Simulated assay, not measured.
Amino acid sequence: MTDAPLTDDREPARVVTEMIDHVLRLAATWTAWDGRPVPSEDRIYTPHKAIRRVADHLVDHLAEIEDRLAGRAPLPDHWHASMITTAADLAPFTEQDHDEARSRLTRLARIWTARLEALTPEQLDHSPGDGWTLRQVAFHLGGSVYYADAVGDLSG
């Protein structure tokens, strides 16, 4: 793993839900996307790719912490992640796509909130198995705004 993420006094569930709220605010503007991928560092992003990456990141780390809490070794990560841009990533982003993204990410936010709020402060600051503490994982997920920020606000 990379360097451990910095944490602060915010509730970890709030960090995750604020990230998702930020992504969805930007996604509400993406129906104006002109179809050209947006370069960011050595990758390109599109509205669909940003939503895919945020959702995959949430699913991947949720599976990781559930395994760790159950005393199992997490499955290795085999996502192609941002390295690939699929044909689906290049599709126009419609109101229906925004609605689907909102439904998907809102449900993931609820799952993360339920999981994190069920943990004690001691559990949040402990690392069951190898890896970051569960608090650090939540703060790491807060960085998923990167994918949406790469596409940006397309309202103007």
Rank of each mutant, 00 (worst) to 15 (best):
T2P: 14
A4Y: 07
P5D: 11
L6T: 14
T7S: 07
D8Y: 06
D8E: 08
D9G: 05
R10S: 14
P12H: 07
P12M: 10
P12R: 06
R14T: 13
V16G: 06
I20M: 08
V23F: 13
L24Q: 10
R25D: 15
R25V: 10
L26T: 05
A27K: 05
A27Y: 02
A28F: 03
A28E: 14
W30V: 08
W30S: 08
T31W: 06
A32S: 15
W33K: 12
W33G: 12
D34T: 12
R36E: 13
P37G: 02
P39W: 01
S40I: 01
S40W: 06
E41Y: 04
E41T: 00
D42F: 01
I44W: 00
I44E: 10
H48N: 15
A50T: 15
R52F: 14
R52G: 15
V54G: 00
A55Y: 10
D56A: 11
D56S: 09
V59F: 11
D60P: 02
D60N: 10
E64M: 05
I65P: 02
I65D: 01
E66D: 08
E66N: 08
D67R: 01
L69P: 03
P74W: 05
L75H: 14
P76H: 13
P76S: 14
W79R: 15
W79N: 15
H80F: 09
S82R: 06
I84K: 13
I84V: 15
T86K: 07
A87E: 10
A88W: 13
A88Y: 13
A88F: 14
D89V: 11
D89S: 13
A91N: 08
P92N: 14
Q96N: 12
D97N: 15
A101V: 05
R102Y: 05
R102K: 06
R104G: 00
L108N: 01
L108M: 13
I111T: 07
I111Q: 12
T113D: 03
T113I: 02
A114R: 00
A114Y: 00
R115H: 02
L116M: 01
E117Y: 00
L119G: 01
L119P: 01
L119E: 07
T120V: 06
T120S: 15
E122Q: 13
Q123W: 05
Q123L: 08
L124P: 10
L124A: 08
D125T: 04
D125P: 03
H126N: 11
D130S: 13
T133E: 11
T133Y: 08
V137F: 05
A138D: 09
F139V: 02
G142Y: 01
G143H: 10
S144H: 12
A148G: 03
A148R: 02
D149R: 04
A150E: 04
V151Y: 06
V151D: 11
G152R: 10
D153Q: 09
L154C: 07
G156Q: 05
